[in-house]
């Protein structure tokens, strides 16, 4: 088995296994941690496919930005971790069997394709190509999205500020 295939299977199991955990857990924090692991797995798969920039952007945007804010929300709706304690029947066997099952499925799926995915990773970096595309062909699209986000930001700020003012005026009446 080639190295690339080994890592591909490893990160696939990580990604899919974590996604399954998100589906079945009742603990919000476990779900967030599993999502973190899943997103990391996706980033690694991007890098394996030769899209290094995309992999790192995935980490910075989704893990460093979106998921942190999600976690923030979870923490503000704080409940005792005790409440989330869940009892899984046959805990150990479940945690060993499910990943094993995935490895088996992936092996059966991937082995016939072995010659096709021998070395998909091109060592040339995609930084320049991506940068050129961003700043030429796709620039107007990004500009529009940026404009849209600016409108959203200003709107959110405005709503927040008027709410604060209302709160203050209420306080004065009392």
């Amino acid at each position: 088995m080639s190295n690339i295939l080994f890592f591909f299977i490893f990160f696939s199991v990580q990604t899919i296994g974590s996604a399954v955990v998100i589906l079945f857990t009742r603990n919000v924090m476990y779900a967030v941690t599993a999502l973190l692991s899943s997103l990391l797995g996706v980033a690694a798969l991007f890098v394996l496919a030769g899209a290094d920039v995309l992999g790192v952007i995935q980490i910075i945007v989704y893990i460093g930005g979106v998921l942190v804010l999600t976690l923030f929300g979870v923490m503000y709706t704080y409940q005792s971790p005790k409440r989330y304690q869940e009892s899984i029947p046959h805990k150990k066997s479940v945690f060993i069997l499910i990943p094993l099952l995935f490895v088996l499925v992936l092996l059966v799926q991937a082995l016939p394709l072995l010659p096709m995915i021998d070395d998909p990773y091109q060592h040339a970096s995609k930084v320049e190509v991506t940068g050129m595309l961003w700043l030429t062909e796709y620039l107007p699209i990004f500009e529009w999205i940026g404009f849209l986000l600016l409108v959203v930001l200003i709107g959110a700020g405005w709503i927040g500020s008027t709410l604060v003012q209302e709160d203050k005026s209420k306080g004065e009446q009392v």
């Binding site: 973190l36 990391l40 920039v53 790192v56 952007i57 980490i59 910075i60 893990i63 460093g64 930005g65 942190v68 976690l71």
Partner: peptide, 12 residues
Amino acid sequence: LYVFAIVSIGVY
């Protein structure tokens, strides 16, 4: 970007 990505995981 790699340094930056790792730093952003550190907060977890």
